[in-house]
Structure formats: C-alpha cells, structure tokens
Design a protein around this nucleic acid. Sequence first.
DNA 1: ATCGGTCTGTGTGATAGCGCACAGAAATGA
DNA 2: TCATTTCTGTGCGCTATCACACAGACCGAT
Lengths: 247, 247
Amino acid sequence: MPATHTPVSHSFHVLSQNDLLATLPADELERLHHHLELVPLPLGEVIYESGGKLSHLYFPTTAIISLLYVTEDGASAEISIVGNEGIIGVAVFMGGDTMPNMAVVQSAGYAYRLKAQLLQQEFNNSLPMRHLLLRYTQALLTQMAQTAVCNRHHSIEQQLCRWLLLSFDRLPSDELIMTQELISNMLGVRREGITDAARKLQSAGLIEYHRGHITLLDRQGLEDNVCECYSVVKKEYDRLLPDRIAT
Amino acid sequence: MPATHTPVSHSFHVLSQNDLLATLPADELERLHHHLELVPLPLGEVIYESGGKLSHLYFPTTAIISLLYVTEDGASAEISIVGNEGIIGVAVFMGGDTMPNMAVVQSAGYAYRLKAQLLQQEFNNSLPMRHLLLRYTQALLTQMAQTAVCNRHHSIEQQLCRWLLLSFDRLPSDELIMTQELISNMLGVRREGITDAARKLQSAGLIEYHRGHITLLDRQGLEDNVCECYSVVKKEYDRLLPDRIAT
DNA sequence: ATCGGTCTGTGTGATAGCGCACAGAAATGA
DNA sequence: TCATTTCTGTGCGCTATCACACAGACCGAT
C-alpha cells in the first residue's frame, strides 16, 4: 500500500487532477485552494458510515471510492463508483446530511478534502459551484439507476466488464489492486462467480490478473463484452460534465 | 378510467394534496398557484421519453408515475416510483434537462404541472424551494440506490411486497388498478413470477386481486413479508421531507 | 348469447447463480 | 526455511428464475 500518512504539498497543477475542481472558474478555485487538504486514502478506509455525518467532503484525485449498501444479513451491493470525476458527500449540499449507505476506499490513492461547512457555503453562494455540483449529482443519479437495471438484467460477466471499465476510467494506470473476493463484495455476488467470469476474460486476452493485481490488456475487448449500462452512464457523465475548462 | 380531459378547477385546498406543494411557505405558494395547472394523467401516458426534454414539471396528487429504463432488447426495469410525495422532472433544476429513462403513468389520477422555465426560476431565486427540491432529490437518490440493492439480493415475492407498499403509500384508496403483466414490466421479471408471488400473498390473506384490480387487505402482513428496502426508503423520505407544514 | 380479447393459472425443461467444501499455488512472516 | 495465511480453481447438488406453451376463466362489445 503506497499511501503514507505524511503531509503532501500541492499546487494548482495537482488540484486539476480532480475534474470538478478543474472545471471551477479560476477565482473560485483561488478562494478554495487554501482550504483544500490533500489526504492519502488507504485501501479499505471508510469515509462515512451508513447514517454517519460528514465532517469533510472529498474530491478524489487518484483514489477510487465505492458507495456500498450492506444489508441486515451482511450482503453488500455497490451503488456507485466515485473517482477523480466526482465528489464524495453529496448529502451535505443536498441538505440531508447523511445517507443510508457507506463510502469505502476501493483503490488506494489521494483526495482533496474540504470542510463540509465551507463547501455548503460555497454551494449556497456561488452559482457556478452550485451548477457544477448539481450536474454531477444528476450523473450520479444515472449511475445508480443504471446499477439497478444492470443488477436486474445482466450477467455476472457483463457486470464485471462494466465494473472494470468504470474502475479503469477512474485510474491513472492500467493496473488495479483488487482481489476477486473484494470485487464479489462490490457486485454483491459470490467470489466463485467472479473467478469464472474473470477467467473467461483472461482467456480472451482482455485482462490479466494474478493474486489481487488486475491489468487491463484490451479495453476495446472489454467494451465489446459489456452491456449497454456502461456507455449509458459514461455518455451521461460526458454530457453533464464536459471536459475541464482549463488544463 | 375515470380521468377525463375536461379542465378541473382547483384551490389551495387541493394544492395541498401534493406534499411538496403543501410544504412550501404560503407566500411562495401564493406566487405559484396561478401558474399551476391541474391535469388528468391517464394510465400509460408517457410524461417524458428517454433523453426527452421536459416542457413542464409535474406534482402528482392522485396519480402515480414510474421512472422506467428500457434496455436495448426491450426489457424494462423500474428505477423509482413517484406519487403525491414528489415531483417529476428533477433533471430540470439539476441542470441536465434530460435523463436516460422514461416516466410513465402507472396509476391514473391527477397532477399539477408547472412550466419548466418557471420552476427553474423559482429554484434559483427561492431558498425554501431549492432546499425542498434538493432534499426530495436526495430521497429519490436513496430510492434508486435501494432499488439496485433489492434487485440484487431479494426474491420476487419480497420485491412485490415492496412495490405494493410503495404504491399503496402513494394512493388515496386501497385499490390499485394494475395487471400482473404490468407489474412484471415494472419489476423487470416474468409475468409468471408475479402470478406465483401474488397468489401466495392472496392465500395468506394480505391482498385480494382479480383481473387487474388489487385490493390491500392486510398492510401489516405485507410489511412482515417485505425486505428491509421498503423501510429504508420510507424512513429516508420521512426524515428528509417531514410532514407538511400546514394542512 | 356469443365471440374475441384479456387476464391468470399451470406444466415442463433449461440455466444462471448460490452454498458449501476442499485443494493447490503464491505470498508472507517468523 | 518452514508454517501460515491469502488467493484462486474446481466440483456438486440446490434453488430461483427464465422461456415457452397452452388452458381456462372472465369481461366487454356486438
């Protein structure tokens, strides 16, 4: 696990590693960036619990976070994935403060964080900020909706493809540190189901995996195997959150 | 189908049949109510298509609307249910204008509608309105998330109980006009699956049905059979949207 | 009174995914 | 180096759900 707990310096340059921050107007970012704190997020860290209040919101840069719901009998299901395109903690500006799911770090990395109260002020006072966050929330809404559809109608193999593509889209590299056991928790299926599906994908030369390391070999191949859910979600993100304004 | 297409008079009294409208401060409602138009919504009417722009937003009073996603190969899945507790068309104030799902009338009735542009103005200018709509949207988010969980982990019978309870919560009466075929489309399962589950519920004395008419007999019984998803969603609505301020 | 359409019940396989059990291989740590 | 833990592969029976096919019951319209 590369994440250390030593403080890390940052600049406008690395701020732009999070798409939402990168899209903000310069004066807005100027106002915020002294309050932004770059923090390492180790694998498995819980950012918020079900029903737990958030002290900070997180803008991931290299980390990936999963929103998970855990049922009473211990089963789990991933509701959505959030990476450097988004933000963790929409409940703060939506006004509900908490949500009945939890946020867990799925892939270690970094995120900028901002005090909840501060972001709420910005949300109320700045129109560009509000528009940006609401459009992001709508994209999140679509991701959740499509997760429901996918859970209903598509095979484990298709869902695995979707999950891998969504994850690799949010990663700076082609390697993902993730055991089949963990993936099965995310998708809410058996570990053996993931083993089967992953083996097929490996035989087909689309990915390579080895004891918790998954390497992307053929993105197009995955896209050929995935269900429509992936592109529906991706198109919605692209439409609602067009490319960052400045580099 | 009782809905006619003749205009219907309305007053503050009936406005309060929609919880969101009822929760608005008096001066806000005063400003809006001349622009609100009561319209009948017949069963099966499509309020918006996937990707379609909305000219109006709808505040259901007695109607129930389903948000549905239809897959490329014609299968469908309900994303959420909206009745007199909510509004149709969140994409308008969230800023995305359209969504990749469709809204269909699941149970005939009435709704107030408001020009999209007008509501967008109110949303931008009125803090109470904004807070209210955003809190509602967060509740909707939870409903979608829980639909994903339920699709993953719970049996058809449990899901039918959830669906019936969510529907009856939004209906003024104990009777629902709905064939098993239609329910199966909503839940994204086979009609035979609904037949089996519904027969069990009828044998247990929880409901009574007959050629497209379903009567609620034992609400507590349904609640005893339903999965946790129902109460998770219900509690979230109650928490985020406390009882209307005035009657 | 009858006919045609709609709604529900039922049967018979097929299949995807589950639960469990265990084995071997690879990493880890003492 | 050896023991332990972690990760992946595999087999087997089980169940829920699916796909398809068809029958009977009910309803409304002519």
